[in-house]
């Protein structure tokens, strides 16, 4: 699980082009949207593609992302339970 969280943080930084943020700065339970990392709805769409591409999880409704992308911790749990690759 720790390895997955580390991997997620690296991928989030890379995929969303968060040049000024390091892995160490993202806490497992930090909110990714709003006051936390400050991600927005376009980032959510980017993360949906990441779920599909890296873990074989397909979301059809962007609203589902709101719950799943709450924090790295929540994301990691969801991925472990639902991943297909």
């Amino acid at each position: 699980m720790e390895a997955l969280k580390q991997e997620l943080k690296e991928n989030i930084i890379e995929q969303l082009n968060l040049e000024d943020i390091s892995v160490a700065e993202i806490g497992d339970n930090d909110p990714l949207f709003g006051d936390g990392l400050g991600l927005d709805s376009i980032d959510a769409l980017e993360l949906i593609v990441m779920l599909d591409k890296d873990y074989g999880i397909k979301l059809t409704d962007p609203k589902e992302g709101k719950v799943i992308f709450e924090s790295v911790e929540v994301m990691a749990n969801y991925i472990s339970a639902n991943r297909k690759k």
Binding site: Q15, I42, L45, E46, V49, D52, K53
Partner: peptide, 9 residues
């Protein structure tokens, strides 16, 4: 496949 929206926007 696996296209992301940023460059389209």
């Amino acid at each position: 496949q696996y296209l992301t929206p940023t460059s389209f926007i």
